[in-house]
Structures are given as structure tokens and as C-alpha cells.
């Protein structure tokens, strides 16, 4: 077993050391990476898993040990350094909470058209939101006659979760007009908001 001692190294060094060791490893050779900080563990683990490696992590006396069997060959051109940046993983992608069907405070017509343009542009942005949550009058954006329905359906197809407040649908008596997403409740909504690294209120 080969050991890569990356203690005291800061990103991207542990990633580069891991990549190099993996490149030089024989098929099924086991490697152990020793790290002393949580962030490095997460970055290296993510790098390995994204590249088809099976990883097990354990912690002992303030040190982290990542064990990996050199299973898959690393594709050429993998940028290990990119894994220092955590801004592009699914968990880091934003959750958006729509508290009303308009954007901002002011004339209704303006707020409505701004919100429509906002949602219609969402399918085209690079980092897609992981979840869209609709509460209060925000639920009107998800109904059969909404101008934003097509964009929301496109987002849902490409993996964005769409959650619509059930109490709100009930209040406005619009349950049978829901055209996208799934009915949700305060338990789930609160859970997603607190777990999100970033919440955007359009």
C-alpha cells in the first residue's frame, strides 16, 4: 500500500499529490492519503468519487485517512485543482424561495413582468438552482395559466426540484391547477432552506 502524506498541505497540493499517485498506481493498488483538515478531505474525496474511485474515509487522532483502490484509470486532462473550488457542486447550487408572484415591491405590472423575465431566463444560466420553492402568492407561478410554466417545466426536466406550498394552494383553492413540481410542506421547506449553502429570494 502506498501512502500519500499530505498533512499540512493546502489546496490544491493534496489534490495534485493524489492525482499523481493515482496516475502512477497499478490496477487495484491501494492508496492511503493522510490529511489533517476537513476541507482537504472533502475536496479529495469529491475528486476521487467524481472520477470513479471507491473511497473510504476514517478519522483517528485528528488525522483523516482516505483509502482508495486504484480502480479506474484517470481520464486525461482532469483538473484536480478545480476541486479546490466548491462552488459548482450540486449542494452548493442555490435554493430559490419565491415569496410572491412578483419581483420586488412597486407597481404590480412591473413586478409581474420582472418575475416572468427572471424565471424565463433561469433555464439558460450555468449553475442551475437545486430547488425552487414557491410559497404564498408565489404559487401562482406554478399554475396552469402561468406565463412561467414552460421555463419551470424545462428546469424540472433538467433536474431542479420544484416544491409548492400545499397550505398556500389550499388557501387560494388552486390545488387542481398545479401544473409543475410537487406539493410540499413546511417541514420539507424548512429543511431545504436550512441545508442550503445559499438561498436567493427573487
Amino acid at each position: 500500500m502506498k501512502t500519500i502524506d499530505a498533512r499540512g498541505q493546502i489546496c490544491p497540493k493534496p489534490l495534485i499529490m493524489t492525482k499523481k499517485a493515482l496516475k502512477n498506481a497499478r490496477q487495484n493498488e491501494s492508496l492511503q492519503i493522510i490529511l489533517d483538515n476537513e476541507t482537504a478531505v472533502q475536496n479529495v474525496t469529491r475528486f476521487l468519487q467524481d472520477n470513479g474511485q471507491e473511497v473510504s474515509v476514517h478519522k483517528k487522532d485528528h488525522l483523516h485517512y482516505i483509502a482508495v483502490n486504484a480502480k479506474e484509470e484517470l481520464p486525461d486532462g482532469i483538473e484536480a485543482e478545480a476541486y479546490c473550488d466548491t462552488g459548482t457542486t450540486k449542494n452548493e447550487s442555490p435554493v430559490m424561495l419565491f415569496k410572491q408572484n412578483k419581483m420586488g415591491h412597486g407597481p404590480e405590472a412591473l413586478g409581474t413582468i420582472l418575475m416572468t423575465a427572471f424565471i424565463n431566463t433561469l433555464p439558460e444560466i450555468t449553475l442551475k438552482p437545486q430547488k425552487l420553492i414557491f410559497v404564498n402568492s408565489g404559487i401562482f407561478l406554478t399554475l396552469t395559466d402561468s406565463d412561467t410554466l414552460e421555463a419551470l417545466k424545462t428546469l424540472e426536466k433538467s433536474g431542479t426540484d420544484i416544491l409548492v406550498c400545499g397550505t398556500c394552494l389550499d388557501f387560494f383553492n388552486k390545488k387542481n391547477q398545479l401544473a409543475v413540481g410537487k406539493v410540499s410542506n413546511m417541514h420539507d421547506i424548512l429543511e431545504y432552506l436550512t441545508l442550503a449553502a445559499k438561498v436567493i429570494y427573487p
Partner: peptide, 22 residues
């Protein structure tokens, strides 16, 4: 933007399929 709002109303009432975007 006022003309956009008028145009949108018009297209909508005549069922001309369109999308509001930036």
C-alpha cells in the same frame, strides 16, 4: 417597459405564443 406591457397584453389576448425575457 410601458410599451412592452402593452405589447404583452395584446399578444396574450390574441393567443400569439411568446415569452417574456431579458
Amino acid at each position: 417597459i410601458h410599451t412592452v406591457l402593452k405589447a404583452e397584453k395584446l399578444l396574450k389576448s390574441h393567443a400569439v405564443s411568446h415569452t417574456i425575457v431579458p
